[in-house]
Write a protein that binds this DNA or RNA. Sequence first.
DNA 1: CGGTATCCGTTCTGATACTG
DNA 2: CAGTATCAGAACGGATACCG
Lengths: 148, 148
Amino acid sequence: MGGMEERTLKSPSHCTGTEQDYDVRQWDTREGCEVRQILDRVADKWSLLAIAHLERQTLRFSELRRRIEGISQRMLTVTLRQLERDGLVTRTVHPVVPPRVEYTLTPLGATLHATIQALVDWTEDHQEEIAAARASYDSRQDDLAALS
Amino acid sequence: MGGMEERTLKSPSHCTGTEQDYDVRQWDTREGCEVRQILDRVADKWSLLAIAHLERQTLRFSELRRRIEGISQRMLTVTLRQLERDGLVTRTVHPVVPPRVEYTLTPLGATLHATIQALVDWTEDHQEEIAAARASYDSRQDDLAALS
DNA sequence: CGGTATCCGTTCTGATACTG
DNA sequence: CAGTATCAGAACGGATACCG
């Protein structure tokens, strides 16, 4: 999703500008819109998983890596750094050898967890409907293609 | 995010496989996991916006395009096709000239709207905290860099 | 109007190698 | 252990041109 090189904090507030007549207007695409930017981060695949796994427990880097199956070391590092920067995760380095680095949700991160869980729950609850819809759509497409 | 060329429906169910001892296990990264795949789609930037704008109203292609500022014609088409395939959006073609194509949320899509809105609301509610966290993190980084 | 097809630069991501 | 650095391939996404 969005890059991470922007450090433009031009319009920190609600992106009100050219008014439109819908309640979705606060979070559309305008340049410098904070909400959209944060949403991109928060709706990110790996971020979602990391936050979910950190619920109510502190985990080490390698523990997280094992739990989030399929994530590369690089992506886990990048994701955790972003979450740390956003104040959603705390990173604690214990000055021992070998190094021990622990990650925890901040209170802010904890509040996000519930919301994320709702999205995950929705997905679980409706996965069969979606799979069915896809199968149906695909077979219709196949039928159309067969007419050629 | 995820590509759209996979039509593998190998494990349509809950991704239970190599068991792990956490409640997040149902939606991790294993190959063929439906939940993760759907989540990627649903958490997509443009999908979110499209669904949000379609709440309680039918919109034409061009209307959607105007409302979702910054989306290209191609991305809108791609997004709407995905949502249609997933059974979240209905596409109705009126056989008139010039063509008139209308999009509506399906009942399934409507149930997703509430969840998405919760995520958006969270983002709006906490955007200042996040902006502050970022600023704080960045200045700390700058301080560190200054020591070189 | 509502697309589709194509080209192409940008971003993302995984693999690999190396380090304190 | 917990990274960082680098590189290459894949995916994303915009611009453009064309069509029913």
